[in-house]
Design a protein around this nucleic acid. Structure first.
Length: 949
RNA sequence: GGGCGAUUAGCUCAGCUGGUUAGAGCGUCUGUUUUACACACAGAAGGUCACAGGUUCGAGCCCUGUAUCGCCCACCA
């Protein structure tokens, strides 16, 4: 042994510098193959399919949140030894990319029709290929351990085949149909939209009251009028009836009568219909089946003709007579003016109402009749046999929406006969999901754009029949004509997204991946796409394979700006995650996102909190520097043996016991998806217990040991009180425990903060080389701590608890009495003899000395002392000239008030017979112990006050 | 019109199955070059848990209602 101080590791800088290590650690992980699921026969696979980011999008904080949550889950399960697959991919984002390319063309003065479909797609693919790789380069910066070898794209041949396969299957079962129906049309995108792609926004407008002249059987005006109220006067040209509530006495005499449509002149029947609200407007509704969903239904009920007056570009057509060719909004103004001039307009009142806007381009959506493809949501299908879902019981009828509802509400029995209930976290989303499915309408899946999966339907020029096929047909299946043309339309992006958990694993082929990893474990995404995506995956997953696509859905919250506003391009308040990782490190950004809020709750992005997370990474780093600084290079520490615990110091037994509780808590919390609470639990343990106390205690012991070694070099004798066996025990090297606890904390934290933990463990810190036994090459594949009971030690926890309260009390007194922080002063502690073995600790941490631990109050001085009375100890500091009678008295009075309040409260509680009778025994017992402690404290304070006079 | 969430310290938020005197980060105040860390350490101040009832031996947590804010869904033209 040398008396020189151990050389510090030069390669570990004083502050953790993420920029220095992140890239190389990431490459090392990736090169090691750690991102791919391990071969572990018998272990249950764990699978997360990553929600595919859009091709057009830049990395935003929603992605960062997604990446972090999923990476934590995957790293945790991987470390638990399970074959953990995290499969990444990209979405082709049909409308978004399509419009982007169209915009590019527009800049060149071209439209897609100028260059044609083929050239358009060629151009789009160029864009795709140029952007696909770039997307994940950004995600990788967050340290995500996805299996890049399996990266997928919704337009790849595999997923494309999945799309066609399920389309054909749905069609053959009668669940996909083509129909002429009223759909949401976006004049901006020039395409149909599904209901979910329409955002309703309140718009301040007017309610126009228009009177329609009544006519007699000969078509002559009677001179009377019926007044209707409308927000869309331009659709008057397509009116085909007037409806009133059947019970409305104002209009009962008009049932079956007729009115004449102003300007256009068409005769309109007046029909009674329950859908009319007599309270609204005039209680009479103009019925426009061609341009309003309610009216469409009324029209169907009464057999009304449908007039379509609006073109796909939002202009009016010849049905609009004098307004033909005008834009719908221009037509509105002109029409109102004309109505006014011709005396039809009764009044114009301000009115705010919800108007549908295209969620993509913001145009006002136009309901119009169009021939589109739909998926039937509620239609029953199949042979009505219970089949694999026998758990559903008799009378069970399959339908797409019904099955998806069942899987969440009751559970779905898969082909393996196991009933799986899709659980949502947080659970509150379940109700929203169920409510939506109960009221669902058919899904319009065709889009009039070119980028996307083209509908696999071919029309025959000769016989007019359709051929629906997975492979491109060369001839019509009905008449064998070779003159077949494929449907021009493409599918809703979400149609292929709905298949994502299947198509990424190889379905419809029966691949190894599909067999191993389907159904997946967790679908993790933002709650805002629960309908758009999650519900549809459940629908299609069950339809395609008779099994749920995943067993848990975890919804993370939205990250808002520091004002609580949703980040958006239009507000220009977005924050680039890469800027943050650059400034604070990935670990800090990740840790903040996970621990700053409650499970699934929205949170604000606050930089001070990221800074705090960075500080934590640095804290951990420095704790490691301290531990490692005390180990010789190449030295392995001794293994800990629980059966030999008696040889350990109380502080060792305490920190091991505490660690074990933390491991148990973290395990339980992670199992329940309480990631934030799990992260906070480790954070608090590392900072408040490991660093603030155990490391400080260890420091003292190491120092003593070092000085003993030095003394030992000079002479056999030592000044240490060898006679005291407690001192000897106390002087056991804390290194094995230090290493063990640090190692455990690194493992616990690795999923949350992969970089700093790995760098300490297998990077420049090289902690792994000091472990008692050979460990994994990298922390990423090391074993996650498992809950156990072997180190639980309540006695040690109590013992150290007492030490800590003594130290705190001394520090407190010093502060209160204005004693210099640096000044070492003599101290008396009246208390249990077990404190004796912690004398050195108390001396160092409270900066006192010499310290006298005495059994009786009388053994300590009474004059010119500052006193603190604890539950089971008293602190007496002789402070001589600093002594202030009034201050001491005031302080003791404060202590007395507190103690007596405690006693009073607890006495009252224990006097309550229903409490002692009904509360659990442990709770009552605890109250009794607390009362005893408070009483002893009170007695101590009062004795001291009496002494003081 | 339905549904959901939030309301806790100056600010931003945790708080599990109801069980000590309700916690954290930031901020504020007072100290500290204490041999891992000033990205730190020690100490302190700061709360009628939105409001009103109820259930319970016991409520921040459960129930009912109210208020305010936010979000989602919905065919009142």
């Amino acid at each position: 042994m040398t008396s020189e101080p151990t050389p510090k590791r030069e390669e570990m800088p004083k502050a953790f510098n993420p920029a220095l290590v992140e890239a190389s650690l990431y490459s090392r992980w990736q090169a090691s193959g750690a991102f791919a699921p391990r071969e572990a026969p018998g272990e249950e696979p764990y699978t997360i399919i990553m929600p595919p980011p859009n091709l057009t999008g830049e990395l935003h904080l929603g992605h960062a949140m997604m990446d972090t949550v999923e990476d934590i889950l995957i790293r945790w399960r991987r470390m638990q030894g399970r074959p953990a697959l995290w499969l990444p991919g990209v979405d082709h984002a049909a409308i978004a990319v399509h419009t982007l390319i169209e915009r590019q063309l527009a800049e060149e003065g071209l439209t897609r029709h100028d260059i044609g479909r083929e050239a358009f797609l060629e151009r789009t693919w160029q864009f795709v290929n140029a952007n696909r790789a770039r997307i994940f380069e950004q995600h990788k910066r967050l340290g995500i351990s996805a299996d890049w070898s399996r990266e997928s794209f919704t337009m790849d041949p595999g997923p494309a085949k999945a799309v066609r396969t399920i389309f054909v299957d749905l069609y053959e079962k009668g669940l996909i149909y083509r129909g002429n129906r009223l759909i949401n049309w976006c004049p901006g995108c020039q395409s149909a939209l599904s209901d979910l792609e329409v955002d309703h926004e309140d718009v301040a407008s007017f309610l126009w009251h228009v009177r329609y002249p009544l006519i007699d059987e000969q078509g002559q005006a009677t001179g009377d009028y019926i007044t209707i109220a409308t927000t869309r006067p331009e659709t008057i040209v397509a009116d085909t009836a007037i409806a009133v509530h059947p019970d409305d006495p104002r209009y009962r005499h008009l049932h079956g009568q007729r009115a004449r449509l102003p300007i256009i002149g068409r005769e309109l029947p007046i029909v009674p219909d329950e859908a009319i609200d007599p309270e609204f407007g005039s209680g009479a509704l103009k019925v426009t089946p061609g341009h309003d969903p309610t009216d469409f239904e009324i029209g169907e009920r009464h057999g009304l003709p449908v007039v379509s007056a609006i073109n796909v570009d939002g202009t009016l057509n010849e049905e609009a007579g004098p307004y033909a060719g005008m834009d719908r909004f221009a037509a509105r103004e002109v029409l109102v003016r004309d109505l006014k001039e011709q005396g039809y307009l009764v009044k114009e009142e301000p009115h705010s109402h919800a108007v549908g806007h295209c969620s993509r381009c913001g145009s006002v959506v136009e309901p119009l009749i169009s021939e589109q493809w739909f998926v039937a949501m509620k239609q029953e299908y199949g042979d009505h046999e219970p089949g694999p879902s026998a758990g559903a019981g008799p009378g069970f009828r399959r339908s797409i929406a019904g099955d998806a509802l069942r899987a969440v509400r009751d559970g779905w029995v898969g082909p393996d006969g196991v009933k799986k209930q899709v659980r949502m976290v947080p659970e509150r989303h379940t109700k929203v999901y169920e409510n939506w499915l109960e009221n669902i309408r058919d899904w319009c899946i065709s889009r009039q754009i070119w980028w996307g999966h083209r509908i696999p339907v071919w029309y025959c020029d000769d016989c007019g029949e359709m051929t629906v096929a997975i492979e491109d047909p060369s001839r019509c299946v009905h008449c064998a004509s070779e003159s077949v043309r494929q449907d021009e339309d493409t599918l809703d992006t979400w149609f292929s997204s709905a298949l994502w958990p299947l198509s990424t694993l190889g379905w419809p082929e029966e691949t190894d991946d599909l067999r191993s990893f389907y159904p997946t474990s967790v679908m993790e995404t933002n709650y805002d796409i629960i309908f758009l995506w999650v519900a549809r995956m459940i629908m299609m997953g069950i339809f395609a394979r008779d099994d749920v696509p995943f067993e848990h859905v975890y919804f993370h919250g939205t990250v808002r700006d520091d004002q609580g506003q949703r980040m958006s391009k239009s507000k220009n308040n977005g924050v680039d995650p890469l800027l943050l990782t650059h400034r604070y490190g990935s670990d800090a950004v990740r840790f903040k996102l996970i621990t700053a809020g409650g499970t699934g709750n929205d949170q604000r992005l606050e930089e001070p909190r990221i800074e705090a997370a960075r500080n934590f990474a640095n804290k951990l780093w420095n704790a490691a520097r301290f531990v490692l600084g005390d180990i010789e290079p190449g030295q392995r520490v001794q293994a800990l043996d629980p059966s030999d615990r008696a040889s350990l110091a109380a502080a060792d037994r305490w920190i091991l016991s505490r660690l074990e509780r933390v491991v148990g808590d973290v395990d339980r919390l992670l199992e329940r998806f309480e990631l934030g609470e799990a992260g906070r639990t480790v954070h608090d343990f590392v900072w408040d217990e490991l660093c603030d106390w155990y490391l400080e205690i260890a420091k003292i012991r190491l120092r003593e040991q070092a000085s003993a070694d030095r003394d030992g070099d000079r002479s056999e004798g030592s000044h240490l009180p060898q006679a005291n066996p407690e001192r000897v025990q106390n002087n056991q090297s804390p290194l094995p425990v230090l290493v063990y606890v640090l190692d455990s904390c690194l493992r616990l934290l690795h999923p949350f903060m992969p970089y700093v933990t790995e760098e300490i463990w297998s990077g420049s810190g090289d902690l792994r080389s000091h472990l008692p036994e050979d460990a994994a090459a990298s922390l990423i594949v090391a074993t996650y701590p498992r809950p156990a009971q072997v180190w639980r030690d309540e006695a040690a926890e109590r013992e150290l608890g007492a030490v800590m309260s003594v130290v705190r009390a001394v520090r407190n007194l010093r502060r209160e009495r204005g004693i210099d922080a640096g000044r070492r002063l003599e101290a008396y502690v009246v208390g249990d003899e077990t404190l004796q073995r912690h004398a050195a600790t108390i001396e160092a941490l409270a900066r006192v000395g010499p310290l006298h631990i005495v059994a009786e109050r009388s053994a300590a001085p009474a004059d010119s002392v500052a006193t603190a009375v604890l539950d089971d100890a008293q602190i007496i500091l002789p402070i001589a000239s600093l002594f202030d009678f009034a201050a001491e008295r005031e302080n003791l009075e404060k202590q007395r008030a507190q103690a007596s309040a405690d006693v009073e409260r607890l006495e009252k509680q224990l006097a309550n017979e229903s409490f002692t009778a009904r509360a659990p025994a442990a709770v009552v017992e605890e109250a009794r112990e607390r009362l005893a402690a408070a009483a002893s404290r009170l007695a101590g304070v009062e004795a001291r006050l009496a002494e003081l006079g």
